[in-house]
Design a protein around this nucleic acid. Structure first.
Length: 285
DNA sequence: GCTTACCTGTCG
DNA sequence: CGACAGGTAAGC
C-alpha cells in the first residue's frame, strides 16, 4: 500500500499522539507479523517501553523507544490504527484484519491490521541492529539524505539501468513505489524503459527535482488512497484525485493522447505514449 | 534481469 | 473463473 508519502503522513499524525506513552502487554494474533525477534521475545520486550519519537526511513516507520526501536513496514495492505477508547472513533471495519494489538497503559492503543499479511514489525536494540537487521538493503531516503550531487553520483553507477526498475530499487534510493514512480516519470516526460545512460545532464537534474517534488506533493495531499490506505486515525488520502497517469488507462492526457498501461519489471505501469516516448534501442532488446 | 512466493480480496 | 493489487525477498 504505502510509499514514502503515505508513511510520512502516518508518521506526522502518529508522533504527537503516542509520544511519551508506555506500551503495556501486546497481543499478537498472527505470529508471522513479527520479523524479529521471535514472537514471545517481541511481546515481552515491548511491554513497559516508552515512545520517544516516531521517525521514518524510506517506507519504514521507526518508533524510537526509551530502550530499542520498533520498526514497521506496511508492505501492500498494512495499516496502523490509533485508537483512543475514551473517544471510540475507529470504525469496526478497520479491525477486520487485525494482526497485532499494542495497547498503551492509558486508554489508548496502536493496532496493526493487514489484509494480505505481507507487512512486518521488528523490535531492535539500537541503531546498529536497526541498520544490520532491518535497513540493510535500504539506501538514502529521498527527502532526507539525498542531495542532487549524491543522486547524480548514484545514477552514474547505474548507467545501464532502466529508469522505472531503478527508481523502485530501495537500495538505490528509498521511498519510491509504483504510483509515485509512474507519476514522476510522467512529469519528467521520460519513458520507464529509458536507460540512465541516455539522459542528458539536464534530464538527470530534472529527474532529481521531480522525484522529490512528487513525494512532497503526495505528502501535502495526505497520501494516495487507491484501496486500503488510511492514516492512523482512519482518514483517506487525497492525492489520487491529482494523479496524472496512474490508474488512468483510457483517460486523455493533457496532450490529447490516450493514457496506456504497459508492464515494466513485472509491474503495471501507466504512461502517456506521446509525452513519454518509447526509447529506440539497437540490437537485442 | 525475470519469475515465484508470500496472502487475501476485488473486479471484469 | 482468471487477472491484478500500493512491496520485497529469494531463486534461477
Amino acid at each position: 500500500m504505502p510509499e514514502l508519502p503515505e508513511v510520512e503522513v502516518i508518521r506526522r499524525e502518529l508522533d504527537p499522539l503516542i509520544r511519551g506513552k508506555t506500551f503495556s502487554k501486546p497481543c499478537l494474533y498472527v505470529a508471522s507479523t513479527i520479523a524479529h525477534p521471535c514472537a514471545e521475545e517481541f511481546t515481552n520486550r515491548l511491554q513497559g517501553r516508552m515512545v520517544k519519537k516516531v521517525d521514518r526511513k524510506g517506507k519504514y516507520l521507526l518508533i524510537y523507544l526509551d530502550c530499542g526501536i520498533l520498526a514497521v513496514h506496511l508492505r501492500m495492505t498494512g495499516n496502523l490504527i490509533y485508537a483512543d477508547y475514551s473517544e471510540d472513533t475507529v470504525p469496526a471495519e478497520e479491525y477486520r484484519f487485525l494482526r497485532l494489538s499494542m495497547p498503551f497503559t492509558d486508554q489508548s492503543a496502536l493496532h496493526y491490521s493487514d489484509m494480505r499479511r505481507f507487512g512486518r514489525l521488528w523490535l531492535v536494540e539500537d541503531e546498529d541492529q536497526l541498520a544490520s537487521v532491518v535497513l540493510k538493503n535500504v539506501g538514502p531516503d529521498i527527502l532526507k539524505g539525498l542531495c542532487c550531487e549524491n543522486f547524480l553520483m548514484r545514477l552514474e553507477k547505474r548507467k545501464n539501468a532502466r529508469l522505472k526498475p531503478l527508481l523502485l530499487d530501495q537500495k538505490f534510493v528509498a521511498g519510491m513505489g509504483n504510483i509515485y514512480t509512474d507519476e514522476c516519470l510522467y512529469r519528467c516526460g521520460l519513458h520507464p524503459l529509458q536507460k540512465v545512460s541516455d539522459l542528458s545532464n539536464a534530464e538527470k537534474e530534472e529527474l532529481y527535482r521531480q522525484v522529490r517534488q512528487v513525494l512532497e506533493d503526495g505528502i501535502e495531499y495526505g497520501g494516495t488512497t487507491f484501496r486500503d490506505y488510511r492514516t492512523s486515525s482512519g482518514a483517506l488520502g487525497d492525492f489520487q484525485s491529482r494523479l496524472g497517469v496512474y490508474g488512468r488507462k483510457g483517460d486523455l492526457c493533457r496532450c490529447g493522447a490516450w493514457i496506456e498501461k504497459i508492464t515494466v519489471g513485472g509491474r503495471g505501469t501507466y504512461i502517456c505514449p506521446c509525452c513519454q516516448k518509447q526509447p529506440q534501442y539497437e540490437g537485442k532488446e
